[in-house]
Write a protein that binds this DNA or RNA. Sequence first.
DNA 1: GACCAGGTGCCAG
DNA 2: CTGGCACATGGT
Length: 278
Amino acid sequence: MNRVSVDVAEFNLTRTLESGQVFHWTPEGSGWRGLIDHTDVYVEQNGIAISCDASHLEVVSRYFSFDHPLKQIYKSFPDHDFMRAALLSCRGIRIIRQPHWECLATFITSPMKQVTHIRQMSLAIRKRYGNPVEGSAINAYPTSKQLARADEQALRECGLGFRAKSLFKASQMVAEGKLDLEKIAALPTEEARETLCGIPGVGKKVANCVLLFAYERLDAVPIDVWIARVLKELFQKKNQKLTPRQMEEYSQTRLGIYAGYAQQYLFHHARAVKTGRG
DNA sequence: GACCAGGTGCCAG
DNA sequence: CTGGCACATGGT
């Protein structure tokens, strides 16, 4: 165990991990512990200094996207009061590069669930089906083959409710090779989205989450209940209603070329305001 | 106990 | 293509 430290401007570890992208990290000491794929990692932040085990630095740098040009991304944000407020309270959040299957599977469990519930289900699934990792209190996220060996009823016991069927079927598709998640990475965004939407339990919103959080499509905008409210706040003219189609259009044309980033800041800020943490 | 949560699939017009 | 509704679970 040999700790190293690197300076990263425009990075806030805690905000990033609490912004609803990823659900299994746990605060420990003055830092955070979690699994990056199968690697047990402990990360700390002191000012702009980020420290972790030397052997993890490469994995950590990629996972937390230290290469994203945050200054440039901030310049691309739309010029609105709410967006400025979101930047103030969310500064330093980076879009994480998650493993494809882990990201897809966790967001299949997300519809009509609060962030804390998604975390609970995710941890329950890891505990029941995932491989143990030495030094880690939680298991690795189970592979598609491991979940395909489960059954719908057992998945329901992890709190999934009606989402159990979708996750089970999706696991089978991937495990049987009917769907190659690695191939999706090479597709243009529109085709990648269509392919993802062919998976049970995956509609536009979940597809966009997966494109943004696992396939590096920084212009993908998941529109959930929170972002729908924000889009109305930003673009709805009074006495007019914003249709889903219009929200989709605005999200693509008015949030800048890093629309996914803008969306993440707006999402987190809107939630923080609501829960009194903003 | 009503209400809401990072929606999706299906069915009717 | 668009709007309405059922679908499970857990926390205020």
